[in-house]
Design a protein around this nucleic acid. Structure first.
Ligand code: FES
Ligand code: FES
Lengths: 132, 132
DNA sequence: TTTATATCCGATAGATTCTGTCGTATATAT
DNA sequence: ATATATACGACAGAATCTATCGGATATAAA
């Protein structure tokens, strides 16, 4: 409950790794996987995903890899989490509405308030706050 | 990711239900399950758990059920979540330390900071803020 | 042009957590 | 006695999370 997924953690680890290098330099999936002891295949997918989201830029071929593309300071954590994992919320009831309780629920409004607090907290931090 | 469990939602629904009734009056599992369309067996366990935590008080026999025992305003949400679901944290790495990355991780400290923010946000709200 | 290194991507499998069910025991008001 | 309620362990099904496999495309360098 209320945990980040590995995918998000791997993404952040990789971004921090890239952030720590010179601007133009390139990091390969293998390099990162070995360095941080992350299963290479799953990291590969994560980086492909980040590339599709234009957060990093892929470079093919030998000596290839990825380098930062987006300004990490411009991406707040809600946006980041949603781009990596999809819709965010304390409960599905806000964006899904398939909830069996929805017609009877007596806590929907208060939960929504708490959810708003949580979102606003994450929105107040950028990816760079994590990778610095 | 970052969602409440049903168990927590059911607990909050039940507590709010009880809060809305007269102080001495008793609510049975069945009454609540029917009212909010919650599977009765799972609600039963949830209420038994709340009773063990001294948050509600069980009353056996016909016309029995549960009634509020604790002051909901005195229980903050971190405490509540932990009493219902166990240890809370954005990542297991803080209380578990079985993480494979732990020796190499470059985001542990920043994540811990974010985690502290989240905890403090939930700590600033009481169960009553949800059930009122 | 061949080779080696790298990203790309769908399909699948395994593990864990979440959610719900069943059976049986115990307590008590009527 | 009987009906109604809580108590509780064991289990099963579903959903999500995590990891693996196979084979494709791109490109630098020999
Ligand atoms: S639990 Fe879904 S609407 Fe309240
Ligand atoms: S992911 Fe576990 S210590 Fe960073």
């Amino acid at each position: 409950m209320l945990k980040l997924t590995r995918k998000v953690e791997y993404a952040l680890i990789a971004l921090r790794h890239m952030q720590g290098k010179e601007l133009e330099s390139v990091s390969s999936t293998k390099e990162i996987a070995v360095r941080y002891n992350i299963p290479i295949e799953i990291l590969a997918k994560t980086l492909q995903h980040l590339a599709k989201e234009n957060i990093i830029e892929p470079i093919n071929g030998p000596h290839g890899g990825y380098r930062l593309k987006a300004q990490l300071g411009d991406i707040n954590l809600v946006e980041f989490f949603e781009r990596v994992e999809g819709p965010l919320g304390l409960s599905d009831c806000f964006y899904d509405s398939n909830c069996v309780q929805i017609d009877y629920c007596n806590i929907r409004t208060p939960i929504q308030r708490i959810n708003a607090n949580m979102m606003s907290m994450f929105r107040s931090m950028s990816v760079q706050d994590v990778t610095n």
